[in-house]
Each structure stands twice: as C-alpha cells, then as structure tokens.
Computed example of a mutant assay.
Amino acid sequence: MFDRNLCCRQLRYSGMMETAKIRRAGYPIRHNFKEFVDRYRMLVPGIPPAHKNEVLQGITNDLTDL
C-alpha cells in the first residue's frame, strides 16, 4: 500500500525535495573529472588542459580547495 504522506516525509528527510529544487533552478548535471578540470582550471595558475593531465582527480581536489 502506498502512503503518500509517509513518502513525502521520507523524501523531505532524505533531501530529495531540495535536490529537485536545485536541479529545477538550473544545476541538473554533475561534471566528470575531465569536464570539471577543463571548465575550472583557469582558477588555479599552472593547470594544463585535462587531456594533458593523468591525475584528474587530484587536480579536481586542488580546484575545490580554493
């Protein structure tokens, strides 16, 4: 049996309602490491394009530590 009130409470508690609100506001995607590095590498001097890097996850960590 489907309990609408219980389902809505669980969605609110788990943060899914906020996630849906954020995605509707225009942030519907997550970038993979290559896309993220290519998009934000100019924020940290000396980071080359993603296709010239081997350790993209480490560079992503450097970018997010700003």
Rank of each mutant, 00 (worst) to 15 (best):
Gly46Ile: 04
Thr19Leu: 15
Leu11Gln: 03
Asp65Ile: 13
Leu6Phe: 09
Val37Ile: 02
Ile59Tyr: 01
Asp65Gly: 07
Ala25Val: 10
Tyr27Arg: 03
Thr19Val: 14
Lys52Met: 10
Thr64Gln: 13
Leu6Val: 04
Pro28Thr: 08
Ile59Glu: 00
Lys52Asp: 08
Ile29Ser: 08
Glu35Pro: 00
Arg23Met: 15
Gly26Cys: 13
Arg23Ala: 12
Asn5Phe: 08
Gly15Leu: 15
Glu35Tyr: 01
Gly26Val: 13
Gly26Gln: 11
Leu11Phe: 04
Ile59Cys: 02
Arg41Ser: 04
Val44Thr: 02
Asn5Gly: 03
Arg24Gly: 03
Thr64Arg: 14
His31Val: 09
Ala20Arg: 01
Asn53Val: 12
Arg24Trp: 12
Ile29Cys: 11
Lys21Asn: 13
Pro45Asn: 07
Lys21His: 12
Asn61Ala: 13
Gly58Ala: 14
Tyr27Ala: 11
Leu6Thr: 02
Phe36Glu: 03
Lys21Pro: 01
Ile22Ser: 04
Arg4Trp: 06
Ala50Cys: 05
Thr19Ala: 15
Asn53Asp: 03
Ile59Arg: 01
Phe2Asn: 10
Leu66Gln: 06
Glu54Trp: 05
Arg39Asp: 06
Ile22Gln: 15
Tyr13Lys: 13
Ile47Phe: 05
Leu56Arg: 01
Tyr13Gly: 02
Val55Pro: 00
Gly15Pro: 04
Val44Phe: 00
Ile22Phe: 06
Thr60Arg: 03
His31Phe: 14
Glu18Met: 07
Arg4Asn: 04
Phe33Met: 05
Arg24Ile: 10
Met16Lys: 01
Arg39Thr: 12
Met42Ser: 10
Asn5Cys: 02
Leu6Met: 03
Gly58Glu: 15
Pro49Val: 15
Met17Asp: 05
Thr60Asp: 00
Asp3Asn: 11
Pro49Ala: 15
Lys21Arg: 14
Leu66Met: 14
Ile47Glu: 05
Arg23Asp: 15
Ile29Met: 11
Pro45Glu: 12
Phe33Lys: 03
Thr19Ser: 09
Tyr40Pro: 02
Arg24Phe: 07
Arg23Ile: 10
Lys52Ala: 12
Thr60Ile: 04
Arg24Asp: 09
Ile22Trp: 13
Ile29His: 10
Ala25Pro: 02
Val37Ala: 00
Val37Leu: 02
His31Ser: 12
Met1Cys: 02
Asp3Thr: 12
Asn53Phe: 01
His51Met: 07
Cys7Leu: 13
Thr64Val: 15
Glu35Ile: 05
Arg4His: 05
Arg12Tyr: 10
Val37Asn: 00
Arg39Val: 09
Asp38Gln: 03
Gly15Asp: 10
Gly15Met: 11
Arg41Tyr: 11
Arg39Ser: 07
Leu66Thr: 10
Ile29Leu: 07
Glu18His: 05
Arg39Phe: 04
Tyr27Phe: 13
Cys8Val: 09
Phe2Tyr: 14
Asn5Ile: 06
Leu6Trp: 01
Phe36Trp: 06
Gln10Glu: 08
Glu35Met: 11
Gly26Arg: 15
Asp3His: 07
Cys7Ser: 07
Gly46Cys: 06
Arg30Glu: 08
Cys8His: 01
Thr60Gln: 01
Phe2Val: 13
